[in-house]
Write a protein that binds this DNA or RNA. Structure first.
Lengths: 176, 176
DNA sequence: AAGGAAAATGAAATTCATTTTCAATTAGAA
DNA sequence: TTCTAATTGAAAATGAATTTCATTTTCCTT
């Protein structure tokens, strides 16, 4: 994860590059605690319990705000909290996913990655085969074209996956 | 796999629906034996051996002409040829992939599927969550838009993956 | 043909991420 | 405080993909 964010301050949250929206990454403390409150309310309402472990895992996950594997998140947390097990991290990510606070994504390397999700989130990915960085974008024209294609097949899209695999600017320049 | 091909005869091989090309499926005997000859030549040239098992597996795979898992292809073959093992089917599919006669695809169900590949193949998928059928399409406008988006990020696309998950016409009508 | 080296085969074992089990612990309602 | 149901975490299980290894087969060389 070595690409430069165009904007690190909290609002305004989106940066426009022509018609592509490069998504701004969270890690904004205000947003994080807001999301944590939402989650707590959700858990309470569903009869789940809020625990120290969940709190730590959720905080770390939201702070990270990236496409992260359960394994990697576990390792990250485990450095400071030796007593939190992999299973709990895994289960918390699953819980977040089921509750709509995260999404699971399976990329071509066959590893499941998790990503915090806000309500309107719906974006696609550019994955660098050189450095492994994952960039996100949204494109309205693309969404429209997808819908049009689906319609022509009488197909009703519930969700979609679009990933570009190739080389980012830095890696492309490096390798010629 | 219960969708209707618009055209089952051999040539003309493509059916146009507006600007989307719905790919014609192989299973055309002439093409199959042609491909088998190509593969045989390739194997010989690379110092690989041509065996009874490979012949059976390749024939069955090309006849199938669909997105099939190693497991499923094995089961299909195993019905008539009890002595051909899963490992050989698996390895043959890998060999075909490395030789450029097939591609591997990982869909959201986390199963690797293989598909016969001709030189110009490059298409995307509509996957029905109802009946599991996988439809293919090509769209030039889409390709152009993808390139444009990548360019704006200074990203050089090597390959891409685009999948729509939803309901096909039949399933949509069934479920209201 | 016969021999021999290299490749192919297939059953079983291994790997590796993901998921489940189960006994012990903990949260939070009564 | 007590009790019950949820949570935890180590370990085991799962399941697809891949590798191992002893045996068999192909096919090149005599």
């Amino acid at each position: 994860m070595n690409f430069i964010f165009l904007d690190r301050t909290c609002p305004p949250r989106l940066t426009f590059i022509m018609e592509n929206r490069r998504r701004h990454k969270p890690a904004c403390p205000r947003k994080v605690s807001e999301k944590k409150e939402q989650l707590k309310a959700f858990l309470r309402q569903k009869g789940f319990k809020s625990t120290r472990q969940r709190d730590i895992i959720v905080t770390e996950f939201l702070k990270t705000g990236e496409h992260i594997t359960a394994e990697d998140l576990y390792r990250k947390i485990n450095r400071k909290n030796r007593e939190i097990g992999f299973t709990t991290v895994y289960r918390t990510l699953k819980l977040l996913t089921k509750s709509g606070f995260a999404t699971e994504r399976l990329f071509a390397d066959n590893l499941t990655r998790y990503e915090p999700l806000s309500a309107e989130d719906h974006h696609d990915h550019l994955i660098c085969l050189g450095c492994g960085s994952i960039m996100e974008f949204e494109n309205l024209k693309m969404e429209r074209l997808q819908k049009k294609i689906a319609d022509e097949f009488g197909f009703c899209i519930i969700t979609h996956k679009m990933e570009f695999y190739g080389y980012c600017r830095e890696c492309r320049d490096k390798c010629g």
